[in-house]
Every structure is written in structure tokens, then in C-alpha cells.
Design a protein around this nucleic acid. Structure first.
Lengths: 201, 201
DNA sequence: GTCTATAGCATGATAGAC
DNA sequence: GTCTATCATGCTATAGAC
């Protein structure tokens, strides 16, 4: 029962197993019987979401590259293939979707080595494929600069995912601002422009 | 003794007081005597850094606006006034500086309400002032879009601060990549381009 | 497979001598 | 102000009946 997902997204990974089983109406010992440990439970929660997500990203990238034929793909299209699947997944199933968004954001933000290792396994190929696509789409940008820009892009994406909205710090509570389609529209425009920024002085 | 800062940056705010006092060669009871609680210690650690940082940001923005005279300020300059002070502080004092960077990143990433409240108090005026500056520099961008872009900019900044480098996920350990001047150069270019992105479709 | 009960340990906080 | 010793509580994990 992965209403553990909800708890991790809401409270962070420091949340207790007791908190989780209370919400899931399950038993504490059962968690260890089925998953082995809390760390393994966290991995299981992520694996369930990461695999289809990254498969979708790669499929979209394939489509973009095929449509472009021999030409380099458009930067916007590549950015969209990277970002859209995450927000899509968030949109698909209402409230649960937004939980997933926050969960992903938290994951990207966490520096826990064990979690990073897990992400690297699932995300490594995605990163390689998109790096190659961006190299083709942005031949005038040096590989080193490109790596930085992808780094910033991931940061902007992560932040957009797990912080309620742009006004979270300004005090206005805008719960309606969480529509993933709106976020996507703005985020793709922002990131694509950043990727295409003129050469640094 | 705020080598608590180091611990929070390295291990997160879940780190135990015992871990901190061991590193500081201090006493557990003394922490409660001087600060009252662990939460109060966290606040103290942040307040020490946030106040001068935000003062510097506002001073830089003042300078930028004065230099521009009656004209709207350049987007790059405004972005730099927002981003540079944090990276500057990180550069000033070597290893300790990088600790501060990671600390700030962690703070922006955390959704803990108490911490958010603290940040809002310190960061609220900064956000208002920079919002106004960006409105003048980017008159063709709607206020709503602008809010989103500032949101993404903060996300990219946060991610750049507390993730070691652009290759952290790709496996290559590039410890030399942490030079704040390099980060700043790339980050300002990326964010400024994102802020100036064409109107969304 | 599922449960209760509990072991074993780490935590934040405090009392009270000095 | 600083220390030792300790309290009360929460945690993950496991043993063992059913």
C-alpha cells in the first residue's frame, strides 16, 4: 500500500512508519515483511513512478527526433519531452497526481546518497539521451555550459514541482495555481529560453 | 557556536544536537540554555546569514536602479543583484562559504512551515522590491507570468547552490566545479534569458 | 501472511550540583 | 554559565503466537 507516497510527499522522508501505517490502516510488522526496511519502502515508492515516467520521456524524445528527421530538433520540443511527462503524470489523476509532483520535487532536492544512487540508475540514461539531443539542438553551446544549463533546468523543474506556487513566499495562498498545464506552459518557455541564452561573456 | 551550520548543511535539519555539540566541543545542556530549543537554534543559524545577505541584495538593487536613472534597469543587472550576493558570500570564505551555499539551498528546498515563516519575514521585502524592478525591466511580461518566472529563477538558484555540480547525477565527481564565479556566470545568463523569454503561446 | 509485544537504541529536553 | 546524569518519548526492527 503506497499511501506511503502521500506521507513522504507531505512530511518528507523523515516521517515515521507509524504515521504511514496509520493512514494506510496497515500493520507495522507487515511493512518489514514485505519491503524489508524503511529505506526499501522508499525505493519501492519511487521505482513505481520513475520507471514509467522515464520511459515516457524517452518515447517523447524519440518522437521529437524522428519528426525532425536529419535536422537538429527544436529546443522547445526537447525541453517539453523532458518536463511534460512529470507534469502530465501529475495531471492525470487529480489530487494523487499533485502528490506525485511534490514527491518528485522532494526527491530531486534531497542529497541523501542512497536516494541519489537510486535516481542515477533510473535517470542516467535519460540524462545521457537528452544531453545528446541538446548538443545537436544547440551546437554553439559548449558541452560544459550545456551541463550547467541542464543543471539549472532540473532545479527550476524541481522547485516548480514541490513548491505550491509562485506566491508561496509572498504570502498569497493561490491553491488554484497548481494546474500542471499552466505550470508547464510557463516552465517550458522559461527553460527553453535559458538553454538558448547567448554565449556567456 | 554555529558549527551547527556545518552540520545542517551536511546532514540536513534532522541532524541530532549530539552530533553538533560533538563537532563544536560543546555541551548539550548549553545549547538549550543559550537558544532554548533546537528549532530556535536553526532560526539563529539562519538569521545570522540572511540579514546581511538580503541587505546586500537590496543595496545592489538600489545601485542598479540609480545607475539606470529614469530608464528601466537591465534584466541582467537585476538578476545579478538577486543572485550574486548569495554566491559572493559563498566565495568570500573558502570552504565555510560553500557550507553556507548548501545551507541556503536546503532552506529553500524545505517546506517546513516554521522555516518558511522565518524566510518570509526576511525575504518578503526582497521579493517585493525585485518584483517591482522586474516589472519595470520587463513591461511586456504579465505580472502573473513574471511571478512564475521569478519562481523558476529561485528554483534554479536553489538547486545550483546545494547540488555539488551539474554532473552530480551523471556520476562524474567534479569537485573543482564549485567555484562560485563560474556558477554565477552561467546562472545569471540562464536566468536572465528565461526572464526575457518571448510571450507564452 | 498478519498480528501483538517488545527489544534496543537515539533523540530533545531538563533537573540540579558546581 | 557549565556540566553530568537522567527522564520521557519516539523510532526501526524483530521475535514469536496465530
Amino acid at each position: 500500500l503506497d499511501a506511503a507516497e502521500q506521507a513522504f510527499a507531505d512530511e518528507g522522508f523523515g516521517v515515521s512508519l507509524r504515521h504511514i501505517i496509520a493512514a494506510a490502516d496497515a500493520n507495522l510488522a507487515a511493512v518489514h515483511y514485505h519491503f524489508g526496511s524503511k529505506a526499501a519502502l522508499i525505493e519501492a515508492v519511487f521505482a513505481r513512478r520513475l520507471e514509467p515516467l522515464n520511459r515516457r520521456r524517452l518515447a517523447l524524445l524519440d518522437a521529437v527526433e524522428e519528426a525532425a528527421g536529419p535536422h537538429p530538433p527544436a529546443v522547445e520540443k526537447v525541453v517539453e519531452a523532458l518536463i511534460a511527462p512529470a507534469l502530465e503524470m501529475a495531471h492525470r489523476n487529480g489530487e494523487a497526481g499533485r502528490v506525485v509532483m511534490r514527491l518528485f520535487g522532494r526527491m530531486l532536492a534531497e542529497s541523501d546518497p542512497a536516494l541519489t544512487e537510486l535516481v542515477r540508475g533510473q535517470f542516467g540514461e535519460v540524462l545521457r539521451r537528452f544531453t545528446r539531443a541538446f548538443r545537436r539542438a544547440l551546437p554553439h553551446v559548449s558541452p560544459r555550459t550545456l551541463a550547467w544549463r541542464m543543471h539549472f533546468a532540473i532545479g527550476a523543474m524541481a522547485h516548480a514541482m514541490y513548491v505550491p506556487g509562485p506566491l508561496a513566499l509572498s504570502g498569497t495562498r493561490s491553491s488554484s495555481a497548481q494546474d500542471p498545464r499552466i505550470i508547464r506552459k510557463h516552465l517550458v518557455a522559461f527553460v527553453a529560453a535559458g538553454m538558448k541564452a547567448p554565449a556567456v561573456r
